[in-house]
Design a protein around this nucleic acid. Structure first.
Length: 484
RNA sequence: CGGGACGUGGCGCAGCCCGGUAGCGCACAUGCUUGGGGUGCAUGGGGUCGGCGGUUCGAAUCCGCCCGUCCCGACCA
């Protein structure tokens, strides 16, 4: 029996129907489930455990960069939201409103936060008086509500979870440095923890956050060839400090508006983990964020409870004591084969099989989720081999995703080539752009591709080649793609 | 919000065209059996057929409205 025949079919193959594959994996792996309310999902324990690991990794990095956590209210008075004109215009189509409290109609309706710049800006104005109060480096873990018309589990839901950082600085340069430092932090997090390589850069003005001077983003490529924004970092300039009157007395005793940034990553990254690493057998989680890193499956044959189970339990116990997230599945009622499929669906990176033959020989069989490669290891070596193998899996997933990303970045010399690539191959297209918004809009209308990022490095981004769409003198090389 | 498809035990579906009071597979429960890639057999529980209204002696089936889900587009993390 070869590898492909051995695979148990539980879900629609990726190649047959990617969207169907995605929603089936979400449900079969018990990451999330639908509720009776449109667009609102339950993040089930297995999915939430992934989020907790993402939180842990991000929170640690954000704090190491000098930030502290706080919590601001869920509701924002309408007047606050209206203070920054572009901001309210950008978000008004998707804000949910509270108009009644108990039985009383409210004098001023309250927005359920679509993001917290407004309420935080109001508070910052109270707290900041002097250059000695700066910088303010606050992060918040919160839920957000945006009344979306089209929803998909994790990728776009009415309510989602995220972290949002909100900082204030003395100078424009410090604000820009903070924005870029967070962008780099996000990139490092995605690559080292999620094993997802990303392109980073700035957004075009039409794609920037409502109320920002400049938006930077990291973009990943899903295995169906569509791009997904993994995180954004905004340089807010003085837009909000002017709207909310966040002033400080500078070192020269002059009153100045602070320079602000905001930045966020969301539960959407769980969707990326599914779409970047998943295969036809289910999830493939990178060990660093996998809720369960190792599953020990005793092979139940004959008197296995006496002959096999004690060894299997000792192995699981040893792995746990070594600090690994290891479980044993000693359920009587399931066959080993059933369990193999189950843990593959759930993305467990490494399986340890222990049967009577193994106990006799003092060994165990290790099976990688990413490659399905098997190896036999002496029990005495497990303590060293298992962590090493998890590192290999983590690196292997990243390498595989990076190879896919790089193979799907293509240059387009002219518009015909551009359209062909977007239509037939998808992925990212790197092409010269004149910088004109009308040109960008035309490309979007005709190809459904948008500018995902413009590289930061001037050498990489700068070009004098003609714009791929209009033929005018190009200003930058931009990465285009169809996106989620 | 526009175009399309679909809502029948937990899941996947048949039944609808041609009205007569609901069936199959998986899952679930119990027992035996089996166990190195979703064992096999037996028995059993579970459904106001998405909702509301209409036609009819009688509606899962015909008609109308509403709701939801998925896909393809316009807006977004």
């Amino acid at each position: 029996m070869n590898e492909s025949e051995r695979k148990v079919m539980q879900i629609t193959p990726k190649s047959a129907d990617f969207s169907k594959w995605y929603v089936e994996i979400v449900q079969k792996a018990e990451l999330a489930d639908y509720t009776p309310m449109k667009g609102m999902m339950v993040i089930r324990p297995h999915g939430y455990a992934v989020w907790e690991n993402i939180q842990k990794g991000l929170d640690q990095r954000i704090k190491a960069a000098g930030h502290v956590n706080a919590y601001f209210p869920l509701f924002i008075p309408e007047g606050f939201l209206k203070k920054e004109a572009e901001h309210v215009k950008g978000f008004s189509p998707e804000v949910a409103w509270v108009t009644i409290g108990g039985k009383e109609e409210l004098e001023e309706r309250l927005a359920v936060r679509p993001t917290s710049e407004a309420i935080i800006g109001y508070m910052y104005a109270k707290w900041i008086k002097s250059w000695r109060d700066l910088p303010v480096l606050i992060n918040q873990w919160a839920n957000i509500v945006r009344w979306e018309k089209v929803t998909r589990p994790f990728l776009r839901t009415t309510e989602f979870l995220w972290q949002e950082g909100h900082t204030c600085h003395e100078t424009a340069e410090e604000g820009e440095a903070e924005t870029l430092a967070i962008l780099a932090l996000y990139r490092e997090f995605c690559e080292s923890e999620l094993a997802i390589p990303v392109l980073s850069g700035r957004k075009s003005l039409s794609e920037k956050f409502a109320g920002a001077s400049m938006t930077y983003a990291i973009e990943a490529l899903m295995s169906d060839g569509k791009a997904l924004q993994m995180g954004t970092s905004h340089n807010l300039g003085q837009h909000f400090s002017k709207a909310f009157d966040i002033k400080f007395e500078d070192r020269g005793q002059t009153l100045q508006y602070v320079w602000q940034t905001s930045w966020g990553m969301t539960t959407r990254t769980i969707g990326a983990l599914i779409m970047v690493h998943g295969d036809d057998s289910g999830l493939r989680f990178p060990p660093r964020i996998a809720p369960v890193q190792v599953v020990v499956v005793p092979i139940s044959i004959g008197k296995w409870r006496e002959t096999v189970l004690p060894t299997a339990e000792a192995v699981a116990d040893g792995l746990q004591k070594a600090g690994l997230r290891a479980v044993i599945d000693a359920r009587e009622e399931m066959t080993p084969g059933w369990k193999f499929s189950e843990y593959e669906m759930r993305g467990v990176p490494l399986r340890v099989e222990i049967g009577p033959r193994d106990v006799q020989a003092g060994q165990a069989v290790l099976v990688r989720r990413d490659t399905r490669a098997k190896e036999t290891v002496p029990l005495a070596s497990l303590g060293a081999r298992v962590p090493a193998l998890l590192d290999e899996i983590q690196a292997g997933l990243l390498a595989q995703a990076r190879a896919f990303l790089e193979a799907n970045i293509r240059d387009a010399a002219d518009y015909t080539a551009f359209k062909d690539i977007i239509e037939d191959k998808r992925g990212f297209v790197r092409a010269p752009w004149c910088g004109d918004e009308a040109c960008e809009a035309r490309i979007k209308a005709e190809t459904m591709a948008t500018i995902r990022v413009i590289p930061l490095d001037e050498k990489e981004a700068g070009t004098s080649e003609p714009c791929v769409a209009c033929g005018a003198k190009g200003q930058v090389l931009a990465y285009f793609a169809r996106a989620y």
